[in-house]
């Protein structure tokens, strides 16, 4: 396509967008509605991934050391733990540190701990986090084989369920997105079809003066892209504002160990995905709606 032709198509498509005032507004509203729902799903899946990641990185396994183990052996255990591939972080918690943390927990009722300070019943321990929770079982068998480890505290069953559930939600939301994108293209191509039907006479004239299919199609496609882009801008504004409002009002209800993305962090993915979807939906919708009128 020559630069001259491209300029002509852009000018024609833009002019036509403004000339078809009401129909353009109707198309933009339809695209915005679809993109708002898509945007909500983008934020939902982003936060779901983020939450799952946090659960995985914050998940700790605690290994308690046998009573009477020497400091040298404890240091070796730390080295052995660091040597296991799937182990991410290793933190040593001495029995004194554990007792102090315990005290912190009971600070309003310290009488319960009276007498225990001289005879600390707690053990030295290591807290480890893993790279990949799916490999918990094999990592656990390696950890259990380390000499000097008395026992291991591990919520593996509940973690398995969580990993399984987030996987299922991710899959379901992906299929829902694909389904929803298809529905959007269908709705939008029908809305644009009404615009094209109103201008079928114009298309017919173009055919008789010798315009090629693409010469006719391009201004419509550019108009569709414009509809998609304006719809994307509107939906990004609405979705990001609503998300900000949601964070402001419900932030306190969410468990403090799970963080949600800040509004600023979701803007770029929202703009990229919704503008991309808007452009594709608008362009595809226009091109598809025109097809029938081009065979004259």
């Amino acid at each position: 396509m020559s630069v001259r032709a491209f300029k002509f198509f852009v000018v024609e498509g833009t002019k036509s967008f403004f000339k078809n005032g009401l129909m353009s507004v109707a198309s933009v509203v339809t695209v915005s509605m679809c993109l708002i729902l898509c945007g909500l799903y983008v934020i939902f899946s982003m936060n779901l991934n983020y939450a799952a990641k946090q659960v995985e990185t914050n998940y700790e396994i605690q290994l308690f050391i046998e009573e009477g183990t020497s400091d040298t052996r404890i240091a070796d255990i730390g080295k052995e733990l660091n040597g296991i591939d799937n182990v991410n972080t290793v933190v040593f918690v001495s029995k004194d540190q554990a007792f102090n943390q315990w005290k912190e927990g009971f600070k309003d009722n310290l009488a319960i701990l009276e007498g225990l300070e001289d005879d600390n019943p707690l053990r030295d321990s290591f807290k480890i986090t893993l790279h990949d929770l799916k490999q918990t079982e094999s990592t656990m068998s390696q950890v259990n084989n380390i000499q000097g480890v008395a026992y291991v505290k591990n919520n593996k069953d509940s973690i398995d369920k969580l990993v399984d559930l987030t996987g299922k939600i991710k899959n379901a939301s992906f299929y829902f997105m694909v389904f929803f994108a298809l529905i959007s293209v269908f709705i939008i191509s029908n809305t644009i079809r009404i615009t094209v039907f109103a201008r079928r006479r114009e298309v017919n004239i173009m055919k008789f003066v010798g315009a090629t299919d693409w010469f006719i199609r391009w201004p419509f496609v550019i108009e569709g892209i414009l509809v998609g882009l304006i719809g994307a801008v509107i939906s990004v504004l609405i979705v990001s504002q609503s998300y900000g409002y949601f964070l402001g009002t419900t932030g306190v209800l969410i468990n403090s160990t799970i963080q949600l993305y800040e509004v600023a962090a979701v803007i770029s993915p929202l703009v990229i995905s919704l503008a991309g979807m808007g452009i594709i939906i608008g362009a595809l919708g226009s091109a598809m709606s025109l097809r029938r009128h081009l065979y004259v």
Binding site: I205, F208, G210, F215
Partner: peptide, 24 residues
């Protein structure tokens, strides 16, 4: 062929009863 049609039509001037001008 369908894709050759526009180039063929450029060799023929056509005038209709209802003029068929682009109103905008």
């Amino acid at each position: 062929k369908h894709r050759e049609m526009p180039f063929y039509r450029r060799q023929i001037g056509i005038v209709f009863q209802d003029f068929r001008l682009l109103p905008n």
